[in-house]
Each structure stands twice: as C-alpha cells, then as structure tokens.
Design a protein around this nucleic acid. Structure first.
Lengths: 141, 141
DNA sequence: CTAGGGGTTGGAGCGCACTCTAGGTCAAGC
DNA sequence: GCTTGACCTAGAGTGCGCTCCAACCCCTAG
C-alpha cells in the first residue's frame, strides 16, 4: 500500500502521515525501489489506533509517550495499560460532560420553540436576550 | 462583580474575557468610576452559556455568528434555534463517536490485562506491537 | 505619602497541529 | 522521447485560541 491509499484507509491526510513519521509517531515504513513508502497491515492497525486516540482528544505529545513506550518493547506494557486506563477515564468524563451540555442545549432549544410557537404571545422574551428570570421555572441559560 | 470575580464565576481567565469582548463575543459591560468593568447577572448567564458552547466544541467563529444573531434582536430566534439544533446533532454524534472509542479502549485495556496476567504465558505478544492477528478473536487494534 | 493590589490598554508572542511550497525523482503510457 | 502523475525532501507558513507584556491608572491601608 502506498501513501495515498494508506491515507484513504486511515483517514489521515498524506501530509499528516509524513509529519507523524517525522516526529516519531509512526515508524518509518519500508520503501520500494523508487524510494516510495510502502505500508503494511501492522502500520495500518497502528495508524487506526492513533486515529482513535486523536479522536478522543489525546495530544500528540501524549501519543508520543505511548508510541515511545510501545517502541521500547513488551516490558512497558504495564505503563501503556496505565496510560490507556487514565485516558479512558478522561474520555468517560468528557462524555458525561457532553451529555450534560446536551441537556442544556435541549432546554434552550425547547425555550426557543415555546417562544416561537407563541408567535404573538404576551411575553415574547428571547431566551438569550437579557433577563428572562421569573418568566418560566426552568433555568435555560 | 468585577472582572476577577467574573472570571472565577464563569471559568474563563481574565485575559480570555477581555479577548472575547474585543472580538465581540461578549458585550462591553458597564464601567465603574475607575473605568473598571462591572458585570451583572445577564452577562454571567451569557458567559456561562458561551462556556457550554465552547465545551461542546463550537468554534469562536460559530459562536460569533450566534452572538451576532442574538444581538440583532428577537427576529433572529428561528435562526438561532436552527443553529442550536444543528449543533446539538453534532454534539450527539460526537458522544456516539466517543462511546465507540471507549469500547475500543476497553478492548485494548483488556488485552493488556490478559497479557500481563499471563505474565509468563507461552505467547506474550503485546497488543500493540506488530501482528497479533489470529491470537484472539476480538479485534483489538 | 507611599506601597500594594487590583484594574486598564494595544499589541506582540506562543503552542499546537498541521498544511503548504518549491524543486526534485521516478515509472508508465502515448 | 515526452508528458503526466504520484511520490520525495526540507523547510516555511497558517489558523486557532488564547496568553503575556509593558506601561499606565486608581483606590485603600499603614
């Protein structure tokens, strides 16, 4: 697999793949006779996992620590497991936070919808605009 | 409420509050006799809502669109409601994506744990290091 | 009356993670 | 033989979102 196909397969742009290689996040792959990078299945699996880590908000410097531990060999497995457990906890916290925000958004959207269906109601204060306290019991802002 | 207390209340650093005011995300608040900013409850509610939007990954440029619509008056309510609905959908998608990543992390952590409990098992391939396909049925990477 | 602790401004600088550019090589097809 | 297109390199540039700085002002407590 050459770099363009690898980019399609992993979801990383070509430039990003070369950048990751340069900083040591991806091992330098084999080259064909023309000097072009040739990627295999192991590289693909690793890049896909990196993509997961990135999706979950892990910074490049953290991924580098993980990648370096991985490169150092099997004896770093406990360290890597610890990192993943810590990261897992952060992601779970993030999910909880986002779910909370979702319910705030829902409340606010509902307030807008109530406001818009009372298109000519007696009190049409926008949920955002200045003070609406006392209008309705829910905390919308 | 002066800026330091407002910063504590909203979770935004003082510099960030002034920056948001400069770019038009926060309205210029009243000033006291010394020229110091004085914030009230309406400002607090708006800043808290901005904090939610930021937490959910909305970019500053999107927040500016929302803020500008809000400043333009009540007739932009439908537009703002649409923005929030679209954003809500993005956040929900993000939550789904993160939950998927969580399960990948769980699988990988489990693989590490299995590997470490078989501290001297016959096959102690690290879940990360090169090929492990065929070892166990789960897809771990 | 002076020191300290908050506040003010405009503008420069920064860290992250890419992203793009210029100039070059190589292999295949017309 | 020449063009096309995918790839290569080193290094410069970009966009975002702050974050910091210098120089200044004002109020209060000792």
């Amino acid at each position: 697999m050459r770099i363009a196909e690898f980019a399609r397969a992993t979801g990383f742009p070509v430039d990003t793949l070369r950048y990751y290689e340069k900083i040591g996040l991806i091992d330098p792959p084999l080259r064909d006779s023309a000097g072009h990078r040739v990627y295999g299945d192991a590289e693909l699996r690793w890049a896909e996992f990196l993509h997961r880590l990135k999706t979950t908000g892990m910074s490049i410097s953290e991924m580098l620590v993980y990648a370096d531990a991985r490169a150092a060999g099997d004896h770093t497995a406990p360290e890597r497991a610890d990192m993943l457990r810590a990261h897992r906890a952060e992601v779970a916290a993030r999910v909880a936070e986002l779910r909370e925000c979702l319910s705030v958004l829902d409340t606010k959207i509902a307030t807008y919808e109530a406001m818009m269906s009372d298109a000519k109601g007696p009190d049409h204060a926008a949920p955002d605009h200045r003070d609406q306290s006392g209008a309705r019991p829910q905390a919308a802002e």
